[in-house]
Each structure stands twice: as structure tokens, then as C-alpha cells.
Design a protein around this nucleic acid. Structure first.
Lengths: 203, 203
DNA sequence: TCATGTATACCAACCAGTGAATATACACAA
DNA sequence: TTGTGTATATTCACTGGTTGGTATACATGA
């Protein structure tokens, strides 16, 4: 395995980086603490100095994905041209493109929640739930600014489509399931009619 | 096809039943072959007589859920009263009710695919993909009979909502995420206008 | 007899987590 | 400057238990 002996990066971050690669690619219970330590170029005892247990390490792995993930969604949205539906569709399109990469393995938060479903109070699941809540709240606020009447309802509907896409595309290994028409239709239906025309014209 | 001495149920089925309970509740890698054998009241050697490997057992576990699961969806649909959207909504409502049970743990097919995402060709994943395909095809045929113009597209959209609901409700442990409005809106939008009125009137 | 099915006992590899010792860095007193 | 204390950071060696899978033998019914 690759020994990451880079001395400039703090040990704790190197361990999280190694955990991220291994847990995301292979799942939680399929990866041993020894494997993470080896990939980080650190003895297991050192790992247990920085993290009190494997569960703690798993939580740190997901916590490390929270902000970067949200930032990516915001970037895809804000850099897209056109109407509100077009900007939301851009998220789906970028995600479909990511899903074409051979190392893509779905949503780390959802996969962890699925694997640890027998441990409902697990810290990693709480972090995953908080992450999705943040995304939902960002969507809601965005929709509210655009004059959507029930922005929370629409935000949750888009969330269902997005997380459903993660699940189905992972199962079939077919990114074409990540379609944009449903999101488009739901947003158009929620837009006030006049605003809909105005925004659709290019805004 | 020989019948077991004690309970009258063939050994192989008892093992699959035990595997179903343990794998669905706890996940694949969290459950040892020994645990399945013990729950089935059988030694591990007997289990390995009926299944050539743990992977084989996992595949059998999902295969055993395929038909009952599809039958349940069809039953919920066909027993519901009213228009096409109302009958599809019935599936979501029944699912939300199931999700309130404390032992509910989402969709076994999706969870297995998520946990074994690092083994794309795994037989269990193939069975899961085939299961979802069957459901998609049943939806498509149903929609086609109702005169939907692009029945496959709508079937896949409903699938995204359904599997998204599985994922999100499992993550948040909140069945209220399993809403029916999005499905309703998408179906109404896909129905031909006149047929929509007729069906909505009570069929 | 012979195929099917079950049991006891066992394996080497691996698992999460720990005990005890040590190395490094810096603060502060002599 | 030098010595010492202390907190941080890291290592080696190890534990008790579990893992998927197997070798061998025994039972049973057709």
C-alpha cells in the first residue's frame, strides 16, 4: 500500500485522508483499522491515539466529506447558466458525469447509513443526517428566494430524486438513470406562473 | 426435496429464513456464517453443504425476497381505490406505514448493493438489479395500459422517488419524508389531458 | 450399497483494541 | 547555556476473540 509519509501534513489529517479513500471505496466493515493505519503510514497504536475507536474514525471520515460535498453542489448550481430549473438540472448532470468514473461508488453518507442501519444512533449516521439536512436547507432557501410557494416541500422532492439517483445508479451501474426531467417538471410546477415565464426567459 | 426431521421445513429454507432475518436487520458483513447457522439450528458444515460460500448465501437471501416484495407492491397497487395517481400513491403510503415499524431497515436490495459496492459483479447485486428492473417493467406496463405517452420514463421517475424515499427515510429515521405529492404531480403531468380527467373523476 | 445430509473438531488469518515503553517539543528554572 | 518537567505523539508487541471455510466421520433412507 501507498505509505503517505509526507511530513508536512498533520498525522490526524493523513489518517482521515486514508480512511476516506478506503471507506468510500470498500465500505466500513470491509476495511480494518490496520488497513487504514497502513495506508496512512502510521502504526495502529498511533491511529488509536488520535481516534478513540473505529466508530470515531468513521464519523471523522464522513465529517471530512461534509463541507467539500456541499461546496461542490453550490458551485455546480451557481456556475450554471439559465433559469432555476436549469441550474438544478446542472447538479444532476454533473453528478451523472461523476458517476461515469470507475471509482465512483455513490453517496458516502447514504452508503454508510445503509451499512450501519442496525446502529441507529451511530455518530456517523448523525453526521450523515446533518449533512443531508444542510443540503435540504440550502435548497429550501434557494427556492424561497425564487418565490416558490412551498420551498421546503420542493426541496425535499428534489432531495428524493437526487438520493434516489444515487441509489439506483449505484445498483445498476448506469448513469443514464440520473435523469433531469422529473426535477425540471417538479420545479416548473412549483414556480408561480408569471415568475416562471420571467425566469425561463433568461432572467 | 427431503423433509427435515424436526420442524417439517426443509433445512435449506430454514437457513435462508435465518439469513433473511440476520442480513436484513444487521447487514451482510456484520453477520457471520456461524450466526446464520446457529439461528437456523444447524451446524456450519450443514450450511456449507447447501451453499457453496457466504456470497452464495447472500444471493439466496436476496433471491428469497424478490417475488414476495414484488407481490406486495402489486397488491398495494391493485387493492387501492381511485385513479392511477391514487393507486401509485397507495404504494408510498403503505411503505411509509411499514417504515414506522422499529424493525424496518429500508430496502434490502439497495442496502446490500450499497454495502457491496466494491464488488460490482457480486451475484447478490445482480439479483438486486434484476429485482428493480422487474419492478420498473411492471410499472412501465401498468402506465402503458393507462395511456401514458412515455411509460418507461415515468416508471423510472417513480422509481427514483421510491428508492430515494428508502434511502432518505432510513437515514433520517423519519417516514414523513416518504411523501406522495411528487409522484402524484409527475403522473398527472404524464397523463393525456382527457384521460386524466376521466380517471380522476373516479374511473 | 450409495447418495444425501448432518455433526464434531479444527484451521490459519484476521479483527478491534491495549499495555508499556519511548521519542519529540517546548516551557521554565538554575 | 544547560537541565528538567510535562504534554504530545509515536512505536512494538500483544491479547482474546472471530472470521470464512474445511477434513473427517457418521447417520439415514431408498
Amino acid at each position: 500500500m501507498t505509505v503517505m509519509a509526507r511530513p508536512g501534513i498533520p498525522t490526524r489529517e493523513r489518517i482521515i485522508s486514508a480512511a476516506n479513500a478506503l471507506f468510500y471505496n470498500n465500505g466500513i466493515r470491509a476495511v480494518s483499522v490496520d488497513a487504514v493505519a497502513a495506508k496512512a503510514g502510521v502504526t495502529k497504536r498511533t491511529l488509536y491515539y488520535h481516534f478513540k475507536s473505529k466508530d470515531d474514525l468513521v464519523a471523522a471520515y464522513l465529517a471530512g466529506r461534509d463541507q467539500p460535498n456541499l461546496a461542490l453542489f453550490r458551485k455546480w448550481f451557481s456556475e450554471a447558466q439559465g433559469s432555476l430549473p436549469a441550474k438544478v438540472e446542472a447538479i444532476f448532470r454533473h453528478l451523472a458525469r461523476s458517476a461515469r468514473h470507475p471509482k465512483w461508488n455513490g453517496c458516502g453518507f447514504l452508503r454508510t447509513a445503509a451499512e450501519l442501519a442496525n446502529l441507529p444512533g451511530h455518530p456517523a449516521i448523525k453526521i450523515g443526517a446533518a449533512h443531508k439536512k444542510k443540503f435540504e436547507e440550502w435548497l429550501r432557501a434557494t427556492f424561497a428566494e425564487e418565490g416558490i410557494v412551498e420551498p421546503l416541500r420542493l426541496a425535499r422532492q428534489i432531495l428524493l430524486l437526487l438520493d434516489g439517483s444515487f441509489a439506483v445508479v449505484l445498483l445498476h451501474r448506469d448513469p443514464s438513470y440520473m435523469e433531469t426531467e422529473a426535477a425540471h417538471a417538479l420545479i416548473e410546477a412549483a414556480l408561480p406562473v408569471r415568475a416562471s415565464r420571467r425566469v425561463r426567459a433568461g432572467r
